[in-house]
Design a protein around this nucleic acid. Structure first.
Lengths: 205, 205
DNA sequence: CGCGGCATCAGCCATTTGGATGATTCCGGG
DNA sequence: CCCGGAATCATCCAAATGGCTGATGCCGCG
């Protein structure tokens, strides 16, 4: 019998997953967590075979950090990410964090059940259309932005001008422009609007 | 016995809602729909007391349009919007479309059940923190953008320059700048980045 | 019919932005 | 200890953007 721990901040989704998973007789839900912190504690005690985890977990730590912490346990559960979005940076991030797979929530229940079985067996499981994107992502990896650049990017996305960013970061405008130039190069764009757009598309912010 | 129709593009969420709703004995789920179109047809046949509807419904028509169509039925079901996001334009839009209420998916199952009962009784039901925002929204209504302005705004959000927008809309750059000036005034901003930001915040796009 | 809202266009001007180039400092890894 | 990446700052210049004012044609509504 394969044991499963559910992690999702929405009670309704947890109920749905439980219903779907326990419809068959080869899987048991041994626990539910609403936050990443809770999930880590519970996984330590319950030692589930598979953790089914959302990426967005409300106010606490996100699914990626949760995955990293879970993979550090001994024995480490297989972590299967099940979420609503498919932004590149998040998919890649989850895989790098050691997730056994990444499924979108709009798939049929059957796919989820199969995914859990395959994750428990040590297989990698990816939604078909994601698989190709991930492989492409391997060849041309997402640009690596530094922490500072991400910080600037966030202010940018909130509509701040260079002057405003400079003030809030306690640097000169020249520095901000320098960071922006690097960001633009890495994202292969030539305007702040487009930078915001691709950053949101890929899930960088 | 109050009858309920579920509308959500995620099978898992529908399962969860069904489990939550049928846990008590005063509510029955009489049907499920994955799209708005499906919901309208089903509601015509099943005549549910309450329709529980997500706002984002994948590729087809959205929850707002679905609500409008549902309210045009005779007898018209009470429509309760249950969704993940709480963007102002969408909340307001749902209320204007005739929805009986608006709840966020992260609430406890109990709240959902109560909401259905109150909606069936003809009450208005809003999440507490939404209620205040809606009332505030009544006083200072969301800016009314024209269709053309929304169109320009969408291109803006995709990072297009004035020149590019002009080309794709078959107008001169002067016209684009004119639209932008109006958009900026209505949104009370002074840069394209900030316009994009508030448009996304309020759910205008 | 006249009025207002909308979409279209134009010109002028100040500010912002983006590109290019280069300098300095700091810090961690080989 | 030296190298390279990161962050910081600077200058110069061209292009894009934003503010202002004003004009035209269309259409719906009282």
């Amino acid at each position: 019998m394969t044991t499963v721990l559910l992690v999702d901040d929405h009670p309704v989704v947890r109920s749905g997953l439980r219903a779907v998973i326990e419809a068959g007789d080869a899987l048991t839900v041994v626990g539910e967590a609403a936050t990443g912190e809770e999930a880590i504690v519970l996984a330590g005690h319950l030692r589930p075979d598979v953790v089914l985890c959302d990426l967005r977990l409300g106010s606490g730590i996100d699914g990626i950090r949760t995955t990293i912490a879970l993979r550090a346990l001994d024995p480490a559960p297989a972590v299967l990410i099940l979420t609503t979005f498919d932004r590149d940076a998040e998919v890649l991030g989850a895989i790098e964090a050691g997730a056994a797979g990444y499924l979108l929530k709009d798939v049929d229940p059957e796919v989820i059940v199969q995914g859990i079985h395959r994750a428990a067996a040590g297989d990698m499981v990816l939604a078909p259309d994601l698989a190709t994107r991930v492989l492409k992502g391997m060849r041309s990896p997402l640009p690596r932005l530094t922490d500072r650049e991400i910080e600037v990017l966030r202010h940018l996305a909130r509509g701040a001008t260079n002057k405003e960013i400079a003030r809030t970061l306690f640097v000169t405008e020249a520095t901000v422009k320098s960071h922006l130039a690097h960001i633009f190069t890495k994202l292969d764009v030539d305007s702040r609007s487009r930078a915001i757009h691709v950053a949101q598309e890929t899930g960088l912010i």
